[in-house]
Computed example of a mutant assay.
Amino acid sequence: MPSKYYPFDSETLKEPLDERWAARRKAADATRRLIENLVNTKASVEELEQLAEAISFQADNLEKQPMAKGRFDSTDAVAFEQKTISELSYELNPVEGKSNPLAPPLNIWMDDEGVYGKTMLGWQYEGPPNTVHGGYVAALFDQFLGIGQKITGHPGVTGQMSVKYLKPTPLNTELTFQGRLKESEGRRIIMTAEILANGAVTATAECLFIRINAEAFKRMKEGT
């Protein structure tokens, strides 16, 4: 692994590339707080109307700035030229991107033996009472194992995934992830993982990834 640049080689949160990315992370963290508070608020109609107006004002301001069409179309990709695609994912991926407010605070790292992770999901991810929505559990597994398959040196795209929900995955509780390589042969990579809360396994997953070549990835980036 290119550990000099690779953001998943350590449990320690990687520092942002520069001051602008640091500001993006700060804005993303503030937006996550806003989302969770909006889900739970008992504010009055008047206060909510004022909030909507303030948010719309800020959204309008951002729309006046230069805009990209996805992270691979971003001028910021130039700054990552000497980095890896993983660096862009680390910042902007919708499931674990540090600068993407849609993403929960998921941290992933790995070694030669497997892949590991931790997070804590707030009320905005609630499905059944006090429980993480099953769709988010699946999304977390997909991203977690998608990163973990890179221990093979030749990662691919998700082909199939199965999830077993053994017990409710609690909100507002530290969740830990453990994953490992089950099989790597030809174009096929199979990874397995589990989520633990308070020492108990709440869900398990097995995911099949299909390796793709550089030309196929280039076509995906170009939308062709």
Rank of each mutant, 00 (worst) to 15 (best):
P2R: 15
L208C: 07
K26F: 11
R180I: 08
N213S: 10
D73Q: 01
C207N: 10
L181I: 11
A200M: 08
H133V: 01
K221C: 04
N130A: 11
R71V: 00
L48I: 09
P155A: 01
A28V: 02
L106V: 13
Q82K: 15
I85K: 05
E53S: 12
E222V: 10
M161V: 07
E49C: 08
G135P: 06
R188T: 14
L140S: 04
Q124G: 05
I190M: 00
L48E: 01
I35F: 07
T75A: 00
L175S: 06
T152M: 05
L140K: 10
K42H: 11
L38N: 11
F8K: 00
A68W: 01
T173R: 09
I210P: 10
T84R: 15
L13S: 14
N213T: 10
M1G: 04
P105Y: 05
I195R: 13
E46M: 03
A197E: 04
P105K: 15
T202F: 09
V201I: 14
Q124W: 00
I147T: 08
I151V: 06
A103S: 12
L208E: 12
G127P: 15
P104F: 00
L102R: 07
N61A: 13
L62S: 02
L38Q: 06
P155L: 01
R211K: 13
E49R: 09
F57C: 14
V95H: 12
R211Y: 03
Q178H: 14
A23Y: 09
K150D: 02
Q58G: 10
Q124S: 05
L171R: 01
A27Y: 13
V45R: 10
W123K: 10
M67H: 08
V95K: 14
L17N: 09
